[in-house]
Design a protein around this nucleic acid. Structure first.
Length: 571
DNA sequence: GAGGTATAG
DNA sequence: TTTTCTATACCTC
């Protein structure tokens, strides 16, 4: 058995007690996971017309396939529903797959007769209006989900779990209903009617614990529990191991006497809580989530590196750790913010191509690509650097209780950090001494007496570099939403204001990547080597015929690029 | 811009 | 909340 953990903690002692033969590997390297995640994203994104594909963590993806479902529902052959064809391309009719629309692949909520060991019941394919019924749309989407999961497995070797519904909230929860290597479709009705007194949405949600609803975190869940269980607040004062923590379900909140949006707003209010949380949570509890599936950004908003420590109380150690963290940060900036400049001669096509993106192309010679010069370009650059620490004993100046553990200081990002002409080790040392240490002294003016349990170094306030914001190109307003109709009797009040009509909304799939087929048991080794960060990799010098060096960041570049490069520094 | 909270994986 | 390390949205000043 192998475990990957960062540093010794009581947890490891615990682990050793239980499993004396456990092998503890210090440090982890998420590079391979990051790469796999990107690979998966790129693979799936190719299928999605709208390009609305959102990543959540490393292994979760939301896809808005509304337009694809619209298109394919239109083309359904009502004469021969068992031999339907899903078009994956609007232009090439040969691209797609056959499917049987009278069957629903995978699980459904509620479970249908076809899931039980009894004769299959035909799936209604009634057509209501031009767009087809919600039922039909969801069934078609389920077939797409099955196809994509199959592609993912055969092409990439990953199995995954998928949920099919009309919002991120419902798709995610539906996906969680049946876990490994499965898919679940949340079936209509999505709204209560005269015949069906309750919608499948609310009956599905009602059985969930409040804390399991995405968007309701620990804090909000506790406040909700306290409210419905009565004020005693069971967990806060009672002994820790008395975790009888009564479960509070969505239905318990929805049906709580005199519950309302306003009450929720009051119950949930607190520092760090956004305005309108009451409406948001009330929406979530009622299955209403109108957040869009957003296009993934080209560059992250921030990159941060942190490490935790059992004891860190000397400036010497801090200095060393600051350099280590700075180095990791720079490496991450290179992998996440640098892109191959595929088009070094762009700008000649008459379009207003932003000069900066060309100018930032800096020729480097890397060891791996020996003599092969690779043009790299920053797709974004951080304007601010932030240092955060977590003192072991949170400033006891405040007499009562102070769980606010982290403190931070930030300053402008020194431009030299963008230099590609110097090795990360060098830049890291410079950053540590010239920027990070001063920030540290701001945080901890005392020469000693502090003890840190964590340090974080972050590159934030990211500025996108030239290029189009692809997000803006695809973002369109989807208005025209009718109010959410709620029957008066037996149904809790609905939030005020316009709420989306699920029938008109998005079909969303959420995919959970479960596992890889190959073995994943080799844990990559990374060392917290304490090697001095001062060895200059002198083979990283790049040269130009008529080269010039920027006196701000030290980057080397052709003469002609310098004026625009200077303009870049001024932004 | 700076510092903080809540949430999620 | 804490176990660790990231990342995001949104709050106030």
């Amino acid at each position: 058995m192998i475990a990957s953990m960062r540093r010794f903690s009581s947890l490891i002692t615990e682990a050793k007690k239980i499993c004396p033969d456990v092998v503890i590997v210090l440090g982890e390297d998420l590079t391979r996971f990051r790469d796999a995640s990107k690979d998966l994203y790129n693979f799936l994104q190719e299928f999605v017309w709208s390009k609305r594909v959102e990543r959540l963590g490393f292994d979760e993806i939301f896809m808005d396939v509304t337009d694809m479902i619209d298109y394919n529902v239109e083309l359904l052959n009502s004469n021969d529903p068992s031999n339907s064809y899903f078009h994956l391309s609007r232009t090439d009719p040969a691209i797609g797959f056959s499917y049987d629309i009278t069957q629903i692949p995978g699980h459904t909520y509620p479970p249908t007769a076809s899931e039980l060991p009894s004769p299959t019941t035909p799936v209604p394919t009634s057509r209501e209006g031009g767009r087809g019924s919600l039922h039909t749309r969801l069934v078609v989407a389920s077939h797409l989900a099955r196809y994509l999961r199959h592609q993912l497995e055969t092409e990439k070797g990953y199995t995954c779990t998928s949920g099919i519904s009309t919002s991120k909230l419902l798709a995610k929860l539906a996906g969680a209903a049946n876990k490994p290597n499965a898919q679940t479709t949340l079936l209509p009705p999505y709204e209560p009617s005269a015949e069906t007194r309750e919608s499948n949405v609310t009956s599905f949600l009602d059985a969930h614990e409040v804390g399991h609803i995405p968007g309701i975190g620990f804090k909000s869940a506790q406040k909700l529990r306290n409210h419905v269980l009565g004020q005693p607040a069971p967990s806060s004062k009672t002994p820790m191991y008395d975790r009888t923590e009564e479960k509070v379900l969505v239905r318990d909140v929805r049906w709580f006497p005199s519950i309302s949006l306003e009450v929720l707003e009051k119950v949930l209010r607190g520092p760090g809580v956004p305005q309108g949380i009451g409406g948001k949570v009330w929406g979530l509890l009622n299955g209403v989530d109108d957040t869009e599936v957003v296009l993934a950004r080209r560059a992250p908003r921030q990159i941060s590196i942190e490490d935790s420590y059992l004891r860190l109380d000397t400036l010497e150690e801090v200095n060393r750790e600051l350099r280590m963290l700075a180095q990791s940060l720079i490496r991450r900036m290179h992998t996440d913010l640098l892109e191959d400049d595929v088009d070094p001669n762009s700008g000649g096509d008459g379009t207003a191509s932003p000069l900066v993106s060309d100018v930032l192309s800096i020729e480097t010679v890397t060891e791996s690509s020996a003599r092969q010069a690779t043009k790299k370009r920053w797709i974004a650059h951080p304007r601010t650097i932030r240092l955060t620490t977590r003192p072991r004993h949170p400033s006891a100046t405040d007499g009562a209780r102070r769980p606010t553990t982290r403190i931070s200081r930030s300053s402008p990002m020194p431009p030299f950090l963008l230099s590609l002409a110097h090795p990360p080790t060098q830049l890291a040392s410079k950053l540590a001494t010239e920027t990070l240490l001063p920030l540290f002294r701001k945080l901890h003016p005392e020469k000693s007496g502090w003890d840190l349990s964590l340090i974080n170094v972050a590159a934030v306030n990211m500025a996108e570099e030239g290029g189009q914001d692809i997000g803006r190109m695809f973002r369109r307003q989807e208005g025209g939403l009718s109010g959410w109709k709620v029957e008066d009797r037996d149904i809790p009040p609905s939030p005020p204001g316009p709420l989306p009509n699920p029938h008109e909304r998005t079909a969303v799939e959420s995919l959970h990547i479960d596992q890889r087929h190959g073995s994943e048991d080799r844990i990559p080794l990374t060392q917290e080597s304490n090697e001095d960060a001062c060895d200059p990799d002198t083979d990283e010098q790049s040269t130009f015929q008529n080269s010039d060096q920027c006196n701000v960041c030290g980057a080397q570049m052709p003469d002609f690029a310098m004026p625009a490069h200077e303009r870049f520094h001024q932004t």
